[in-house]
């Protein structure tokens, strides 16, 4: 226990601050994004956007990057975002993968189970337009072939910074959906 405490104290807080100092691991691009995200979530959501992940047949690259947002470096939860266990608790669905035929029904049911107003994000090249699976016998060729998509996030996979940028876009969409 002593060893664990000592390590925790010596590492300290590694989470990247919105006002990150130059030279921090965040790099110059991430700090302003985090700052903007922080301000927007406070203003628009009162600090809460709940996200449900739906893997519709991805290679797991997008999903690992999504997971990275929860590591202590990005720690997205501090800004009011959280990944929730059920679509019934979600405001936004992050869909990765091109929607395989084997998952089509599961995707449709998950969308149906998400209360309105909801946003659907197509995360990654496969979700946007099928990517390397475009034209395949086994996939639908993109999320919007199956359900309407609000935000497209290209990238193979999109980096955590790309996903944060996409969340900013999502927040811009919300007032128009009548959430205010």
């Amino acid at each position: 226990m002593w060893q664990m405490l000592r390590k925790s104290l010596s590492v300290g807080v590694v989470t990247e601050r919105p006002e990150a100092a130059p030279g921090s691991e965040a790099g110059p691009e991430l700090a302003p994004l985090l700052k903007e995200l922080d301000a927007k979530t406070r203003r628009i959501l009162g600090r809460s956007l709940h996200i449900r992940h739906v893997d519709s047949g991805s290679c797991n690259g997008c999903d690992f990057e999504m997971n990275a947002l929860l590591n202590p470096i990005y720690d997205l939860q501090r800004l009011g975002f959280d990944f929730v266990a059920s679509p019934r608790h979600a405001d936004l669905l992050m869909v990765t993968g091109p929607v395989t035929h084997n998952l089509r029904q599961a995707v449709l049911r998950t969308v149906d189970a998400t209360p309105l107003p909801r946003l659907v994000m197509a995360l990654g090249g496969c979700a946007c337009d099928g990517g390397v699976t475009a034209g395949s016998y086994a996939s639908c060729g993109g999320v919007d072939k199956v359900v309407p998509v609000d935000i497209y996030v290209p990238g193979c996979p999109p980096t955590p910074a790309d996903i944060i940028r996409a969340l900013l876009t999502a927040l811009d969409r919300l007032p128009a959906e009548g959430r205010g």
Binding site: D55, G57, S58, C59, G61, G97, P98, T100, N102, L103, A106, C126, G131, V132, T133, G135, S136, Y137, A138, S139, C156
Partner: peptide, 24 residues
């Protein structure tokens, strides 16, 4: 569930495009 038919996707592709599929 995530069967994307990638082996078939590679068919007919040249060696570089096949690599793009294999890597994904």
């Amino acid at each position: 569930y995530t069967h994307r038919g990638l082996e078939k996707q590679a068919e007919g592709k040249d060696l570089d495009d096949g690599l793009v599929v294999a890597e994904r």
